[in-house]
């Protein structure tokens, strides 16, 4: 029994660090995937706003619905310790995120609010897409300005 205890104890002491690093890598990868998904949906809306894609109410609404659904995911929980741009070369997340978690959460809530309004805002014609896109993009910018590494 004692041997087993020692084994468990030593294992539990030894594991955390590599597990931690793996957590950070996974979180960064997940964040990038999340942003890519946002960008695909935003790209559809901005294409319609610019007239590069023909306006289609159902398609616009589908894109906005996806954004709203994505915005209900708890993204801030993916910003785990050890995943800032200082800790990891793949990350563009500024350390300021971890110094201002409350403000960071508020900025994400701002995006959630904009995304919740988007499905209704993009209906009723191509002329409405621009304003809806500006609200959404403004929420992107609000957070990127302070918390994304500019490079």
């Amino acid at each position: 029994m004692n041997v087993l205890k020692t084994a468990i104890l030593s294992a539990s002491l030894a594991i955390p660090l590599p597990l931690f690093a793996q957590d950070a890598d996974d979180a960064i990868e997940a964040r990038h995937g999340y942003m890519k998904m946002l960008s695909i949906e935003m790209g559809k809306l901005s294409g319609m706003a610019k007239g590069e894609i023909e306006y289609d109410e159902a398609a616009a609404q589908a894109a906005a619905n996806n954004l709203a659904a994505l915005s209900n995911y708890d993204l801030p929980s993916l910003f785990v310790e050890g995943s800032s741009s200082d800790d990891n070369g793949d990350s563009d997340a500024l350390p300021a995120i971890w110094q201002n978690t409350e403000d960071f959460g508020a900025k994400f809530a701002g995006f959630r609010e904009a995304a919740a309004a988007a499905p209704a805002a993009v209906t009723g014609g191509q002329g409405n897409i621009g304003a809806a896109l500006q609200t959404l993009g403004g929420a992107c910018k609000d957070c990127h300005d302070d918390y994304r590494k500019p490079d």
């Binding site: 809306l45 901005s46 959404l136 992107c140 910018k141 990127h144 500019p150």
Partner: peptide, 25 residues
């Protein structure tokens, strides 16, 4: 191109997304 889908420079698509992103910096 700051990736916000609203404030995209008019030459951003011509220079490619990597350069456009760097141009923000």
């Amino acid at each position: 191109d700051p990736d916000d889908f609203i404030n995209v420079g008019p030459l951003a698509s011509a220079v490619g997304s990597g350069t456009a992103r760097q141009a923000v910096g």
